[in-house]
């Protein structure tokens, strides 16, 4: 196996304290997205449109929180892998329940 040290593996900057400026910018983006999702809730997009927009904005916000506040962007492969496992396995659950319910 290569010289990569699995014991201490990270994305390179995980041992640096988080930057105040970056965190402020992320917070501002999160607050802006919150206002956007509330505002769009009052625009007529149809039920499907609302679900898509609501999920997309919530997903973007969750991505910001995980990528920066939860420093997933600075992590190595393993934390990203397990973060992915959580959502992938949830997708398994959703997929098969949907297959059943839609064709029942």
């Amino acid at each position: 196996m290569s010289a990569r040290d699995e014991r201490r593996e990270d994305g390179g900057r995980a041992l640096e304290p988080p930057s105040v400026v970056t965190s402020l910018v992320v917070l501002a983006a999160l607050l802006a997205l919150t206002l956007a999702t509330v505002a769009l809730a009052y625009v007529d997009l149809g039920t499907v449109g609302h679900v898509v927009v609501g999920l997309a904005i919530a997903g973007a916000k969750a991505g910001l929180v995980m990528g920066f506040f939860m420093h997933l962007g600075h992590e190595g492969r393993l934390p990203r892998l397990f973060a992915g496992f959580g959502f992938t396995w949830l997708a398994f659950l959703v997929l098969f329940v949907v297959i059943d319910v839609v064709t029942r």
């Binding site: 098969f96 297959i99 059943d100 064709t103 029942r104």
Partner: peptide, 10 residues
């Protein structure tokens, strides 16, 4: 009472 398609896939 699960759907036939789901049963087939499983």
């Amino acid at each position: 009472g699960q759907s036939y398609l789901a049963s087939l896939v499983f």
